[in-house]
Design a protein around this nucleic acid. Structure first.
Lengths: 354, 354
DNA sequence: GATTTAACCGAAAACGTTTTCGATTAACAA
DNA sequence: TTGTTAATCGAAAACGTTTTCGGTTAAATC
């Protein structure tokens, strides 16, 4: 099946390619009659413009690129959903790539997207990205760029993210207000800014409530694709501190789940013996027993907003309008479920001396 | 920053565009010396071919399209990961679209992908797709097409899927061999073939083991994004049959999870009072208490295999080699966890009269 | 009748490649 | 000298659009 071109329509109707093109695009210097003839034939032949030719001529691909660390993440899969929705509304298509948390791959993928002539790029940085030349290259090519979630503060472009520090602060403050005092933190790796910020929020909440910060209560989790880290660190924590810990605030829900697992296996009751507070509101957190209190990040909103801003920049660039980079902080919310709610008849006993 | 073209390199070196192109592509009729000059300058100017022009000329986009019902599914997110991996190995990019289980949208997206000139299309059909003209259109355009997971048997193209019927049969047979006799089935909607096949496998397993099939033990779940369906149907089941049911085989893990929730809320012990067997091995199934027995579908393998076959067809088409459509059945496996393993001191009591 | 105006159309250039085919030169053989 | 061969290069066409600009008619105006 040979694809039909303007030329074929033109020959069929004995008019020029120019006129056919104009008719299809609604130019005013085409008579009503010829316009109708063209439209009818185009319809009949199921004409679709060759997008390579259009892109070449118009210097536009109508494609944006999206790079994320991993598709297999509840959070990112929802972000993608948000992006796809907005892209479709703008008649755009989305090329998806995953960096697998590797800097080199991320860099290569940026080059691929640039060579493909995408009109814009959305990216959430890998945990191992510490240099940003590849992002600067995008900017130098004058391709709209937006960082979301895992961002780099020093790169000059629009950004969409959450206030990790405040969210963590709120969560820990909530625990404190509930009466928990000896609150541990299972933190993430050092690299992504998020884990640093969440740690800082945790620390600040303690200090603001006159609870001394104890580094011995901070445990490091570096793997975030499995719950073993939470499990093993829970074991370690009980070895280190016995049953003196009131609550744990974890960098992510998965870690909390690992702790729940450990508690299940060892007859420790959540939340009566140990309260838990996670982060990200993974799907399973509403499903596990006890249901997990957590921080809602609104990933769909993050995806939507990021895409909206990017398309706005693309449009402005086309119209030679000035672009000012936006920094949007998506508000987070605490989702209170059972894991942080000690039962009435078993109030918090352990209150350490302040 | 103006992007650099062959023409610019040619002018700089006072040679023709032709020669520059040939030098870059390693043609033999370019002298060693000029070749070196071209390569050096191209390197220095960071030349990258304009992909629109290349695509126009070569009639190849180096892009494949992928349509899935929903990105926010553990299963699909892993399939995507598999596809992306293989695509990258083949120097291909992936345009991702989600149909949101809507036929009209799926159809429109096919048109969009065709108009974009993708070199091939991978698709898992929406639950509401009952006509296949849009797929026939792809075939008529001579664009390699592959259906995976949710397939249409009547469409003449390659397919990658699992044997739902056999997997269900195996799961239910396992339950029977474990001593469970009165086994209910929470099935899915009528539309996707998968849910029919799983139901048929369930039925066959009963019959082959001389257990009468009782339609009253089959409950219909139509929503598969939430666990309410499992929860509510569990309630209904206990109202209908009291505690006479041994086990439930569910169309998907999520439904089992809903049942677990209901049991949790009503003091019913899983698996001692009721055994459960799910389908798909969602991440959370290894996390929930009790851990859920289920069927592993190997989504990564499905993604990989689908992409491999598609790229093979694309290659063959380029070389004018004959293409024979493949139907690959990815083997499934039972994942036995606690939800189907009644404890020793609480053996199965209820054995109905055969 | 001459001139302006409006309506309609098409030639041609441009976007940046790839590839065919012929041209040119130099070296070599007859 | 003529003819052959190998090595190197470039003109030009083609891929399918979009858009500028000028041309041709016919109607309207003076």
């Amino acid at each position: 099946m040979r694809t039909v071109t303007l030329k074929q329509i033109a020959e069929e109707l004995n008019i020029s390619v120019t006129t056919v093109s104009k008719a299809l695009k609604g130019y005013s210097d085409v008579s009503k009659e010829t316009k109708k003839r063209v439209l009818d034939l185009a319809e009949r032949l199921d004409y679709t413009p060759n997008s390579f030719a259009v892109s070449l001529r118009m210097r536009q691909s109508k494609i944006i690129g999206v790079i994320i660390p991993d598709t297999v993440h509840y959070f990112f899969s929802i972000v993608i959903k948000g992006i796809l929705k907005v892209a479709e509304q703008h008649d755009y298509m989305v090329i998806l790539m995953q960096s697998n948390e590797k800097f080199e791959l991320e860099k290569k993928q940026i080059d691929l997207l640039l060579s493909k002539g995408v009109d814009g790029i959305l990216i959430s940085l890998s945990n191992n990205t510490k240099r940003f030349d590849h992002l600067q290259k995008v900017i130098k090519h004058d391709i709209p760029l937006l960082l979301f979630d895992k961002i780099a503060k020093t790169v000059n472009c629009s950004k969409v993210y959450i206030d990790d520090r405040k969210a963590a602060y709120d969560a820990v403050t909530y625990l404190i207000n509930k009466g928990y005092r000896r609150i541990a933190h299972f933190r993430g790796d050092l690299n992504p800014q998020n884990s640093i910020d969440r740690f800082l929020g945790y620390k600040q909440a303690l200090l603001d409530n006159n609870i001394p910060f104890d580094p011995k209560l901070v445990y490091m989790c570096n793997n975030n694709t499995d719950f073993d880290d939470g499990y093993n660190n829970a074991k370690q924590m009980f070895e280190d501190h016995g049953h003196t810990i009131d609550a744990v605030f974890t960098i992510t829900d998965l870690i909390s789940i690992g702790i729940i697992k450990y508690c299940d296996d060892n007859g420790i009751k959540v939340p009566d013996d140990l309260a838990l507070f996670g982060f990200s509101n993974w799907f399973m957190s509403s499903v596990i027993n006890p249901e997990l209190s957590t921080v809602e990040q609104h990933p769909f909103k993050i995806g939507e907003t990021s895409a909206e801003i990017l398309f706005d920049e693309i449009k402005r660039k086309l119209n030679d309008e000035p672009i000012e980079y936006k920094k949007v902080v998506i508000p987070t919310e605490l989702v209170i479920r059972k894991s942080s709610e000690k039962s009435e008849n078993n109030p918090i006993k352990k209150v350490i001396n302040l």
